[in-house]
């Protein structure tokens, strides 16, 4: 499993002339979980989309093994994307399809059109899908429609779908932004565990700093399209936070986050405790 190198990656939006990424360079070793933090509009989302080219970078290189992802033609790109899983903030499930169909759609890059149209997936894909649903605690929901699930359950389907690709690299875009604080932690823990089990490299966009510190091996701070911090989670002190987010009274940030968490636990939506615990 290769390392990922970003070299002088620039993204300029032609219409607005806005430079979302201003020469980004860093490398990620294999198996590393990197949290990408920064204020809204810093370019986090653009950055991870430049890796699998859902957004086309303007210039620069994304080296992955012996490939430069930026220069791939469309059919090679499609083949390469199969090995890059992606998890989305709003889950990006197909609401009217079943959980199983959503999970199996992670295999679309590997099966022919007719096979996928008839939902006639190879047995080993179906076995893998059930195994993943077991792992994320949703096998009883295989034939439920995706829009019947709660936010946390939907994100687990999104995770299972990404892992169905048997990816080497995971791009995770704000996985917890639509979830309550407790579910957020469970989802982040699940993603981190799965990455370690499968030795996946992962880039996780996240705006929740305590959560990033809890689960990442390394934190990269982005501000205004530039890397302004790159270090271990425990190096992320108040000074670093100020360089990323600007001046603010950081002292009780952790305290506040904790309060928010406790508070949500009391008044927030109650989850199915047993299933949640069964997950861990």
């Amino acid at each position: 499993m290769p390392a990922l190198h970003l070299e002088n990656l620039i993204k300029r939006y032609e219409r607005s002339g806005n430079e979302a990424l201003k020469s980004i360079s860093f490398s990620i070793g294999e198996g590393q979980i990197v949290a990408l933090i920064g204020p809204s509009g810093a370019g986090k989302s653009t950055l991870i989309r430049c890796v699998n080219r859902l957004v086309e970078p303007t210039t620069g290189k994304v080296r992955w093994g012996d490939l430069d992802l930026v220069s791939l033609n469309s059919s090679d790109l499609r083949k390469t994307r199969r090995r890059i899983g992606m998890i989305f903030q709003e889950f990006a499930l197909v609401d009217r399809l079943s959980v199983m169909e959503n999970v199996l759609s992670g295999r679309l890059g590997y099966v022919g059109f007719w096979q996928s149209f008839m939902r006639n997936y190879p047995q080993k894909d179906i076995d893998a899908a059930f195994a993943l649903l077991d792992r994320v605690g949703l096998s009883a929901f295989a034939d439920r429609r995706a829009d019947n699930l709660s936010g946390g359950q939907r994100q687990r389907v999104g995770i299972a779908r990404a892992l169905m690709q048997e990816p080497d690299l995971l791009l995770v875009d704000e996985p917890t932004a639509s979830l309550d604080p407790k579910t957020s932690r469970q989802i982040m823990r699940l993603i981190a565990e799965l990455c370690r089990e499968r030795k996946l490299t992962a880039i996780v966009n996240i705006h929740d700093v305590p959560l990033a510190k809890m689960f990442a091996d390394r934190v990269i701070g982005l501000r205004d399209g530039r890397v302004v911090f790159d270090g271990k989670p425990d190096e992320l002190n108040n000074e670093a936070l100020t360089s990323i987010y600007g001046e603010e009274d950081w002292e009780d940030a952790g305290q506040r986050a904790l309060m928010k968490f406790v508070h949500a636990g009391e008044g927030g939506p109650q989850l199915d405790q047993e299933r949640v615990l069964g997950l861990r």
Binding site: N52, R78, A92, L97, S105, L108, G109, F113, R161, Q165
Partner: peptide, 18 residues
């Protein structure tokens, strides 16, 4: 969902169908 299918390497027809 269209973006997700693109990210998974689905073909144009598969994206249409899913």
């Amino acid at each position: 969902p269209l973006e997700a299918m693109r990210a998974a390497g689905a073909s144009w027809l598969q994206r249409l169908n899913y």
